[in-house]
Design a protein around this nucleic acid. Structure first.
Lengths: 219, 219
DNA sequence: TAGATTGTTAATCGATTAACAATC
DNA sequence: TAGATTGTTAATCGATTAACAATC
């Protein structure tokens, strides 16, 4: 019960790091590593050992002072914590260049988070299968989402169309959206939106690269 | 001189928001809006009015209590603050599905941050022009980067290849990297790395969507 | 055992928020 | 002028870090 509470209060950054740890651990397990210490995981994840320990405490898995964390059991704990019991289907809306790239990117990557259906308003794309994923018309969004139990979506439509798509997704019962369109989406409180804004990210890189260059030239 | 100091101490989040404000302001200017108040910009950017005011103070542009901020002059101030004087060329390494999508995404989007050259190890792609961008062999990285004054790069290669690519980029004088590969890159301190980890983002969405669904069903 | 690592508590840090005088 | 908004300072909040007893 206390663990439940902790689970709810965990920070957004911690969840991101947990997802990262799991991926690193899967690689390590493939290499036959059985045990790992917080500082080793921290070095790989680019964070501190204290953060690793705090994050792992939140998932409810305890390590040992002598052996650190057992890799297979830790992976299992992370799976229980992060994954939905039966897997979660994802809808992708907008099968343009970026949408297609993301379809191919996620194909076979995380079995528990498969893109189950794609949607586009272009009639030429509808009913075609792209990277193993069927493309439906936008009119069938609610129907397909309900039929396949889809509660998550990725938006890769142009900025002007994004809000309308988000509205339709919410209407269709979607609870979480990964948004690549460069717009802030207005959604109800029960819907979680995660933005990936490539232009903003590139401008941040440009700014800080320039700053460090200036710092470097005038120490 | 004081402004210089402020400029250096500005937070990473503020820079991201400034980039967002500028995009919103450009749209507003297109619609003929001349003045804007902090709370209006905040509503569009999904942040608070206090954040907007603090961020804009950092760029050194002052608003008026009666008229708010003048849109054209504010855009100009943001341009001075965020953009490099002569523009910054960007290299894209890894012309797969994602790389091509990003090439098309950034084509003509930000004139000051143009992808000037693409690189790939696949000989079939070398010397071809994709979305208006010439693709070079990885061997010519340093040469082309120097010739075109490129200091920024986007990595869209598979995870296994990312570190080697990052090393080569650093060697070629790159100061900032936008990394789409799901690995933490080890780079010197003077190089700024911004990660876009789509898998982690999607897992975050999945986790928080599930949390809010549970909260919703048991209030 | 000795010693490095763990989980836990207190201190620190930085960003956000609240409060308010100054302004047009 | 009156009033909403600005820039600025102090208070709050949350995450990170440091410190340390417990552990195998």
């Amino acid at each position: 019960m206390a663990a439940q509470k902790v689970a709810r209060l965990i920070s957004e950054r911690s969840i991101g790091r947990l997802s990262l740890y799991r991926r690193l651990l899967n690689v390590l397990q493939g290499e036959g590593v059985r045990n790992i210490y917080s500082h080793q995981l921290a070095a790989m994840a680019g964070c501190t050992a204290a953060q690793v320990r705090r994050d792992l405490m939140a998932v409810g898995y305890s390590g040992s002072p002598t052996h650190g964390y057992e890799v297979p059991r830790l992976i299992e704990s992370l799976r229980e914590f992060l994954d939905a019991p039966g897997g979660q289907g994802v809808a992708l809306v907008g099968v343009g260049n970026l949408g297609k790239a993301i379809l191919s990117y996620f194909t076979g990557r995380r079995p528990n988070l498969q893109i189950a259906a794609a949607f586009d308003s272009d009639p030429y794309k509808v009913n075609r299968v792209i990277h193993g994923c069927r493309c439906y018309s936008m009119e069938h969004l609610a129907e397909v989402a309900e039929g396949q139990g889809i509660r998550l979506a990725i938006i890769t439509v142009p900025a002007q169309a994004a809000q309308a798509v988000a509205d339709a997704l919410v209407q269709a019962g979607v609870r979480g959206i990964l948004n690549f369109a460069p717009v802030r989406l207005r959604v109800p409180d029960h819907v979680h939106v995660e933005d990936i804004d490539m232009t903003v990210s590139l401008e941040k890189v440009a700014y800080f690269a320039r700053q460090s260059a200036e710092r470097g030239s005038r120490p």
